[in-house]
Amino acid sequence: MSLRTSPIHDLAMRRAELAPERAFQAVGILAIVLPLLLLLWLFGGALVDAWPRLGWDFLTGFPSRKAEIAGILPALAGSAWLMALTALIAIPLGLGAALYLEEYARPSRLTALIELNIGTLAGVPSILYGLLGLEIFVRVVGMGRSVLAGACTLALLLLPMVIITSREALRTVPQSLREASFALGADRWQTLRRIVLPMCLPGVLTGVILSLARAIGETAPLITIGALTYVAFLPDSVHSAFTALPIQIFNWTSRPQAAFHVNAAAGIVVLIALMLLLNGAAIWLRARLQRRVYW
């Protein structure tokens, strides 16, 4: 029984009209609202600082030693390349792992180990993925400090989150539909491909987009694998050197001149706007998913 519906709780609530309890409630609300207000104030400050720099020139310009004419085009292009490649790598791997764990794996020590390991990986600091990427992708595999190496690193970083959300999406497909498909003579892969995957796809995509919204702000692993901080060209292949929006923000922030801090603020506004856009897309997809009923 839920505590909230309990009549005894109501009774306790009624006799609870006491000053200390009200004061405590007010403190509790403050503990939630104050940090949010602080964040709002910080964003307000960044937006005000960034306002004069925000414009078409900033979005389409190249970095420069003069803060007033510097732009973020290479950083935007680098982030776009990174996100597209990361999604291309993380979706099949994550969905494959989720399909294995949900549809194929039988309970065994190995399955339990994989599940435990996914939880462990989710707690590894992101900069350690950077060290992994530096050694494996940049050096051993020989990708160099390329946008591909960056995407591989970010894909591994996102994998736990993609697997977890994909498994949740797979679980929403009713077992009865699988059994109906089996009864019609389909084998397991046919059932997955024709019935299960189409139905869980919006859920999987929602999870992937939310993961990408997190990845687009990731800075530390990209610095570790050697993303450049000053790039005056656009990436033209997966082997190009690259920079990314958060790296550009970091670079401008670490300069002493206040004019570059203004650029960093403008970069932050663009980055947050992109994140909001991705989150909005995920929410829209989820809403569509909830409206669509197959069974």
Partner: peptide, 23 residues
């Protein structure tokens, strides 16, 4: 197909192993 999906599942194990081995 089962083998391919199993390999996808093992990527997470190899990631952990990779981090440990590299470090």
């Amino acid at each position: 197909i089962a083998a391919v999906l199993f390999a996808c599942g093992m990527v997470s194990i190899f990631t952990t192993l990779g981090i440990v081995v590299v470090l």
